[in-house]
Design a protein around this nucleic acid. Structure first.
Length: 824
DNA sequence: CTTCTAATCCCGA
DNA sequence: TCGGGATTAGAAG
């Protein structure tokens, strides 16, 4: 045999293979063909037993021009060699000669002869390493032109082209294949360079910002006049920096993917945000001068930055990388949304005319929607068609400092504790940023909440929102909420929210006397149809979920905290309960009230089953649940019944009536027909109505021991609450001595009262109560009972017990109406 | 040295 | 079986 396979260790695949390397024979094909010696282009005479040669020897052999000449085969060979001659012009004379000879010396026999001759020459000819060749410029031109029109030619086109160019179809195919991959790598490289540029730009920007952050410190020692501005400026820089860091990380991840190696982002090596003590501590107490000129141009990220990148990518659905990118993309979207929402909140909280105007009655403020739409770009998209808007604003002095309020708002547990009647349930689902420099400034988190109006006629509002906290100046903070249902589809749950919160929240400013001025804005869009018509006016006026209610609750709760903090026990509080006993009782009352709210609004804290029994009034909602393993309430089947009615009585009068222990017998069956007695009283506010008390019902007869009732009452501008529960006497003793209240089992019942003006319903006419406040002449009263119907959790609910509770509730309502002489 | 390119190997649809 | 990604090694810069 005149040529042979050799061990080719360079080929991929690990093990040595036998490869017949046939110089200049581009018909030569896969090693398989050669191995099998079935190559049709081989002159049959040339085939003999393959033998293995040492690679070096084989190379020498094949590198000899003689060999290549000799092996030139096939009809395409002619053109090939011509091209080769062109390409290699100027090479060593030997090579040239051989090529020049080729065109004329080709035939089967020539090859055969040449081959043998070459083998002989191999030893003495200088090595030539031309195994590969290039296509001629003409060929490439033709290929390119077809590629331009059609980078993916079908078999027919390739065949046609191969004939025209005297190339093998296989070569054409390879060419196109390679061309396509080449295009792809070029594209990637191009994108890579763009990303690199972007990266550099961000890096430079970051550097300059860090520089800018450092400088104010030096200039600060100079003049205190600029303090407000500097502080504000610094906040912006910090936020901007957070944004830059996020984007840089993202770009690094992308760039790293294309370069095939991780790129360390400059930011990762950056020291944590410096406390910048000289700046912060050097600020005087009256530092909120900058408040009036809060720039309306908060630094927002270029809106199309992230999107632009993701669109230009050839979409690599790789797993880990892309989720990382998605996550950081998501985070920067959140940040952008938060910043936009913050800007809107601050503006909407501080602008009066023409954004807000007073209602004709002179009371609450009404948002001017035309002006609103003109002023703000909708940051969570347009309002769904079926939704209506609700906007309210309220300002009030609250006995709390800004830091404490911010801390309360940013901690979901404290938040829920502060607004127990408003928040059925809440949790922080994700903390995107916990704040900068050890403060809540810049903190950004995802939250979930169920908001409630205490009535079975108003469904809970479930909202997912971003909460973003920002310090605007010394002693001036703002916390903004904004719904994220529009940009977050990750949850996968196809629950369409019945409510979305537009930028809402509060701006709080410390006052010198320990109070702070809180401006609250609540702005939401919701499906009006889900609310009972009885409540629609109230809710659309912002008295349901609106700012008035938040501020009123905040004021009342903070007042309560202030009273409990102060060591002086109220003079009114003559009952001698130890401080720890007071704490325990208040804690128990708190739990009672929370449970009451959960029962009224069917919050998901408990798993309530709605009941549609036959003999239940239309507007009475009855639910049951099983109570097991909760030491805080009796085990068994708990039945909850609730209804709401409108009464032509002011909330104050209704409240005073319901909380008066001496008038208890007029509506409460627990009173056994007689007055109750107040055994203990813990004041929770200036208003005597805000308190926790312990009542004793008179015994029905001598054999029966008297019953104790724990009661919590509260009232503020937005409504009132009377919640009570019968409690075990020995257990109550433990609590009053400071014992753990967690094991006191109770099931709360009670009333929620909200003001509702006469304008909301014509037929009921004017109030029968000529109170001083003409505007509020009616009330919406919610009555709710939770009753243990069977102490066996496995027991079935009987129709009787449902009817009993239904009767109880309607009787109570009737008695109250009768007592207040407003029978309708 | 790096980049380009024809070709090969190998894998997955 | 085919297309395409990874790889290879000679050619070219």
């Amino acid at each position: 045999m005149n040529f042979g396979g050799f061990l080719d260790n360079n080929s991929g695949g690990g093990g040595a293979r036998i490869v017949a390397d046939i110089p200049f024979n581009h018909n030569s094909s896969s090693s398989n063909d050669n191995k099998n010696n079935t190559n049709n282009n081989m002159p049959t005479g040339a085939i003999s037993q393959p033998r293995l040669l040492p690679q070096s020897l084989a190379k020498n052999m094949f590198n000899s021009p003689g060999l290549s000449l000799a092996l030139q085969t096939g009809m395409e060979g002619q053109n090939e060699v011509t091209r080769m001659a062109e390409n290699y012009e100027g090479n060593n004379s030997v090579g040239r000669r051989s090529r020049e000879e080729e065109p004329d010396s080709r035939s089967g026999s020539d090859n055969l002869e040449g081959a043998s001759g070459d083998e002989q020459d191999a030893a003495d000819k200088p090595p030539r390493k031309k195994r590969y060749h290039r296509h001629t410029p003409q060929q490439i031109q033709e290929l390119e032109s077809l590629f331009k029109e059609c980078p993916h030619p079908d078999e027919k086109q390739r065949l046609e082209l191969s004939k025209r160019l005297s190339l093998e179809t296989r070569q054409v195919k390879f060419w196109f294949q390679n061309r396509r991959t080449q295009m792809k790598t070029q594209l990637e490289r191009h994108e890579n360079s763009i990303l690199r540029q972007e990266n550099d730009k961000l890096r430079a920007e970051n550097m300059s910002i860090r520089e800018a952050m450092r400088n104010p410190i030096c200039t600060n020692c100079g003049g205190p006049a600029m303090i407000g501005e500097i502080s504000l400026e610094e906040q912006h820089l910090r936020i901007e920096n957070a944004r830059l860091k996020d984007e840089l990380d993202r770009v690094c991840a992308l760039a790293g993917k294309f370069l095939g190696r991780p790129i360390s982002s400059l930011v990762t090596s950056m020291p944590p945000p410096m406390p910048n003590s000289s700046l912060e501590l050097g600020v005087g107490s009256n530092g909120f001068g900058g408040m009036n000129n809060v720039p309306t141009t908060l630094p927002l990220a270029p809106p199309d930055f992230g999107v632009g990148i993701s669109n230009s990518l050839p979409v690599v659905p790789s797993t880990r990388q892309s989720t990382g990118i998605e996550r950081s993309l998501e985070r920067s979207m959140y940040l952008e949304l938060a910043l936009a929402a913050m800007e809107e909140l601050v503006k909407i909280a501080q602008t009066d005319e023409p954004l807000w105007f007073r209602s004709i009655e002179g009371g609450r403020e009404i948002l001017n929607h035309e002006e609103y739409i003109r002023t703000f770009t909708p940051c969570i998209g347009m309002r769904p068609n079926s939704f209506v808007s609700e906007a309210s604003r309220e300002t009030g002095m609250v006995i709390i400092n800004s830091l404490a309020l911010v801390e309360t708002l940013m901690d979901s547990n404290k938040w829920a504790e502060m607004f127990p009647c408003l928040i059925a349930r809440t949790s922080t689902t994700d903390v995107i940023s916990s704040g900068m420099g050890g403060t809540r400034n810049g903190a950004l988190q995802l939250m979930h909440a169920e908001l409630q109006v205490l009535s079975p006629l108003v469904p809970i509002r479930e909202v997912n929102f971003l909460r973003f906290c920002k310090q605007h100046a010394e002693g001036v903070w703002a916390v903004v909420d904004v719904s994220i249902d529009t940009i977050r589809e990750t949850s996968g749950a196809p629950t369409f929210p019945n409510c979305r919160r537009l930028p809402s929240g509060c701006v709080v400013q410390d006052m010198p006397n320990g109070y702070s001025k809180v401006t609250w804005v609540e702005h939401a869009e919701y499906e009006e149809g889900v609310n009972h018509h009885l409540y629609r006016q109230l809710i659309s006026a912002g008295m349901g979920f609106g700012a008035q209610r938040w501020v009123a609750t905040l004021q009342r709760q903070c007042e309560c905290l202030a009273i409990l903090m102060s060591s002086t026990v109220s003079a009114r509080d003559h009952t001698a309960i130890t401080p720890s006993g007071r704490r325990s009782m208040l804690k128990l009352a708190q739990r009672m009230t929370n449970n009451f709210c959960a029962g009224v609004c069917a919050s998901t804290v408990h798993k309530w089953n709605k009941l549609c029994a036959g003999n239940v009034d239309e507007d009475v909602r009855v639910m049951t649940r099983k109570s097991v393993d909760d030491p805080g309430e009796p085990a068994g089947i708990v039945l909850s019944a609730a209804t709401s009615v409108w009464l032509p009585v002011s909330p104050q009068r209704l409240f005073d009536f319901l909380r008066d222990e001496r008038l208890r017998s007029e509506w409460d069956i627990l009173s056994n027909g007689g007055p109750m007695q107040e055994m203990a009283h813990i004041a929770k506010g200036q208003d005597h109505g805000n308190c926790v008390s312990l009542l004793r019902a008179s015994a029905m007869n001598a054999n029966q021991s008297s019953m104790l009732i724990l009661q919590e009452t509260c009232i503020d501008a937005a409504g009132a609450l009377v919640v009570y529960a019968p409690v075990d006497i020995p257990a109550m003793h433990v609590v009053m001595n400071g014992g753990d209240s967690a094991y006191v089992a109770l099931l709360p019942s009670g009333f929620s009262i909200v003001p509702d003006g006469p304008g909301s319903r014509g037929s009921n006419g004017p109030s029968c109560n000529g109170g001083p406040d003409q505007r509020i002449s009616g009330s919406l009263l919610t009555v709710a009972f939770q009753i243990l119907v069977n102490s066996l959790p496995t027991a079935k609910l009987t129709v009787e017990s449902v009817e009993t509770v239904n009767n109880l509730i309607s009787c109570t309502v009737q008695k109250i109406k009768a007592a207040l002489q407003c029978e309708s």
